[in-house]
Nucleic acid binder design. Structure first.
Lengths: 341, 341
DNA sequence: CTGAAAGCGCTTACAG
DNA sequence: CTGAAAGCGCTTACAG
């Protein structure tokens, strides 16, 4: 936009100096006589000049922009991201952290999708949430030496130094304990299919816990993109088990909503017959009946952490303190309420 | 980043063609023999080449990026934006709408702030929420013929064609009716100081309503940046009135929280002595005691509308349907609960 | 302290 | 259908 504007040459001509001097005046590089600077700034003001960050970005290979890639499903199917949920809140908080330090945050499509937009490659650094196993984007970022932070680890590379911890095992423990306290004795897990830490580590910890307590491991996988339908299917799968569960940990809110709806349809009572906890809080869990207990994943805190981690790499001098997230507070609702006396 | 990458020249050399041919192959402009294209793509793949959007953006004056400016306080004091509130949700939803159509959304600082980053000028178009009276940014956008949408009108230019309606008078009516139904007979307004439509139109409608019903007009202005402190001050101001109100419409959540806390401190009961409605829902209104009734401003719906309005200008052919917001649903909480029987 | 000049990687008339 | 060349607006050694 606004490229029909005046340029550094116009300012130079008007101020009677070279473009070098104008450039130095605005960039703070080099040394310029204060009187000359004043002339330059006056000329610029008269012309309504401002530096073109795109041109400067091209020249300096630095744009002042942090990229955010939402993965895995989101990059390819943004229409499936529901509004009031995790991603917008994460993105908004990350963006504000960047703004506070003079950076813009850009939400970009996954650039490794063939034929898609490659705007991401223009960014000074990238935040990825959540990386998939052997993520091609992460491989690219590393090989090109682009600064990055990951929210949740690549499951095949848990030791990456730039991972923001999402505390999946701890959260899983907390959910399972909560279900037990609510009266559940046979707890099933409904997890997703995306190969991300959140899914993999949850299932792993769930299985460990079941084994420890000698309980059966009841795991159903549901496609993230399947939405409520997939949740309904999961409900049918669970009810078809020989030993029906009386508690379910369902990770995504789409699935949880469909699952509960289906359980009710099939004549079961929630929470009396089956208690349900959703792993990611969302608006749709609050409003309908019964409301569904959920984990507050603290997207804002994670977004701030991820942005801060990246800004620290981009500008080592930066003084950045962001609050630690209180991982996985459980918000209790009807779906795990104890029977009234 | 990644500017130590291979360029269009490397690809041209390797494929044995000119850079023009490579450019045409990737941009879809011009006509290139399919066999040649295949050679070019093969060479590009071997080199890991991808077009540089910054260079292309400079040349074509088009970056594929929509800017979002949060105003007025946010641009200058981003640290004052609370996490779980309006802006992140608005921004996240707008961003996803852009992504769905091949654009990136960039959250940028207000470029009219002297000495600040001017990244905003690099965008193909700008969403502004919320413009202030005689907004210099809007003036700039117009004069430079940059596409834009405004969320809430410039109060001195209500007929701008690119405004997303925020339905302030309707919402004000709904809140005042709700307070009356909750038993309030003398309702005060605590509004902000930023010269934005939300403040101005709320106060205007409030005064009209009070005049219609012959009630006194009790208006207190509190600084947006004052936060909870300013809300406490507002409480003191209200209690100092000769005819103490028994209902308060307080627009921002910071103010509302401080206001209620102070009322309790001073020995009043909420809702029994004073009913309170907040004009913008936020996390902090839910958790503490008493929880505070609030207006759900539907930031996600507004964000989608604003982005869609801009994308339609950028690409007139685009098929964009976004849901109309259900402006201003009231979320009832303790602070307006009717006395138990 | 100031300026002339090369070049960042791409696009786009224009000529063939 | 293909290529040589100018130029988008800036930055940065380098020479003065």
């Amino acid at each position: 936009m606004a490229r029909q504007r005046s340029t550094i040459r116009d300012v130079a001509r008007r101020a009677g100096v070279s473009v070098t001097t104008v450039s130095h005046t605005f960039s703070g590089n080099g040394v310029v006589n204060p009187a000359t600077q004043a002339r330059v700034r006056a000329a610029a003001a008269e012309l309504g000049y401002h530096p073109d960050v795109v041109a400067s970005g091209l020249r300096r290979s630095r744009l002042g922009v942090v990229g955010l890639v939402l993965r895995p499903a989101v990059g390819e199917h943004p229409e499936h991201v529901s509004d009031v949920d995790y991603f917008p809140r994460f993105a908004g908080a990350a963006a504000l952290t960047c703004l506070e330090h003079g950076y813009a945050l850009m939400l970009v499509a996954d650039p490794t999708v063939p034929g898609g937009p490659v705007t991401a490659y223009a960014c000074d650094g990238i935040v990825v949430t959540d990386p998939v196993a052997d993520d091609p984007l992460v491989a690219y970022l590393r090989s090109s030496r682009t600064p990055y932070t990951l929210v949740g680890a690549d499951v095949n590379d848990p030791d990456d130094p730039w991972v923001v911890d999402i505390a999946t095992p701890e959260i899983t423990d907390r959910v399972l304990d909560h279900l037990t306290e609510a009266g559940a004795t046979r707890v099933a897990l409904v997890t997703g299919c995306d190969p991300i830490e959140w899914n993999a580590a949850t299932e792993q910890r769930y299985r460990e816990r079941m084994r420890e307590s000698g309980a059966p491991e009841l795991v159903v996988h549901a496609l993230e993109l399947g939405g409520g339908e997939a949740g309904m299917q999961a409900a049918d799968d669970l009810l078809a088990l020989p030993d029906r569960p009386d508690g379910v940990y369902c990770q995504t809110s789409d699935h949880a909503r469909g699952l509960v709806d289906r359980l009710l349809e099939r004549g079961l009572r929630v929470p009396d017959d089956i208690r349900v906890v959703c792993g990611s809080d969302a608006d749709r869990l609050r409003a309908t009946e019964p409301s569904i207990t959920a984990v507050d994943l603290q997207p804002e805190a994670l977004g701030r952490q991820a942005a801060a981690g990246l800004l620290r790499q981009l500008e080592p001098g930066l003084d950045l303190t962001v609050p630690d997230p209180q991982h996985g507070r459980i918000i209790e609702r009807r779906s795990t309420a104890r029977r009234a006396v």
